[in-house]
Amino acid sequence: MSSDGAMLDTLEETEELRLEVRGPWQEAWRRFKKDRFAMFFLIIFGAFFLLAFSAQIVELVQGDQASYAKSLGEMGYDFPDSHAAPTTKAFPLALFGLDWSGRSVLLRVYHGCKVAFLVGTCGGLLSVLIGMTLGLLAGFFGGWVDGLIVYLYSTVASIPYLLLMLAFAFILKQGHFAEVYRESFLSSYLSLGLFNIILVIGMTSWVSLCRLVRAETMKVRELDFVQAARSLGFGKFRILFKHVLPNVFHLVIISFSLTFVIAIKTEVILTFLGVGVDKEPSWGSMIAIAKNELMRGIWWPLAAAGGMLFLLTLSINYVGDALRDALDPKLKD
C-alpha cells in the first residue's frame, strides 16, 4: 500500500511539473498565437469549416430536392432575367447574382465549400497517411524495405505531376473502375467524381512528405531515447509509433496544410478539364461555366467562386506558414 501511495505522490508531482513546463505542442501554440494574422486566418478557416459542415447537413436533409439545382423562378421568386446581377432582392439568395439558368450563385458557392472541404480533408488525409507510413517504415527499418520504398517514390516522382494526375483521373473516370464504383455502397455517399479526385490526390502527392519523414526518422532512430526504449525491450512497432512518430509529426501537420491547398486547386483544374466533379456544384465547375459567361459580361459567378477559393487558399497558406514557423524548434524567440 505504501508503495502505491508513493507512486500517487510522484504522479501528482509530475502533474504539477507539467503545468509549469510547456510541452512542445503548447510551446508551438503559444508562438502561433503571437501572430495576429495567423489567428485571424485560422478563424476564417474555421468559418469555412462551419459553412462546409452545414452545407453537408442541408444536402442530407434536402436529398434530391437540392435547392442549389433550382432556379429562383422555380423556387417561387419573381426574376424575369435568368442571369440577374447581384441584388438584395429575394435576400439573401440573389446577393451574389444568378447564373445562366437562374440559379442562386450564393447557394452554389455555399455548396462548393462542402466539395472543397471534402476534397481537401480526405485527399490530404489519404496522402499524409500514405506518405507518413511509408516514410516511417523506410527510415526505421532500412535495408530492403527502404530500398523498395525509395524506388517506389522515385518512380512516382519521376512522372510529371500534371500528367500523372490527368492520367489517373482519366482512367478512374473511363475505365473498369467507374463501373465497379457505381455498384459499390460508397457511391451513394460520395459521387464518383469526388471520390476520383480524392484518390488522385492521395496517390500522387504523398512523395514529398515520405521523403522528409524518411530522412527525419533515420536521424531520430539513432537518438538516445530510442536506444533506451530498445534496451527496455519494447517492440519495434511500439517504438516506431510511440517514440519515433511524435518526433516527426510536425512534418505531417505542415504537409497536411500544403496538401489541403493542392487538393482544392486540383479539384478546380480537374473539374475544369472535365475529369473531375460532375452533377454537384463545385468552385471548379462554376469557374468552368464562368468561362463562357465572362465573355458576355457576366462576371459574378466567377467572382464568387474565385473569391471563395482565394479566401480559403489564402487562409490555409498563411496558417500553414505560421505553423511551420511555430513548429520549427530552431526558431526560438
Binding site: K265, V268, I287, A290, L302, G306, T313
Partner: peptide, 15 residues
C-alpha cells in the same frame, strides 16, 4: 506573394 499564390491559375487566366 502569399496572396498571389492563393489565386487559382484558372482565375488569373480567365480574368
Amino acid at each position: 506573394a502569399i496572396a498571389g499564390i492563393s489565386i487559382s491559375s484558372l482565375v488569373y487566366i480567365l480574368v
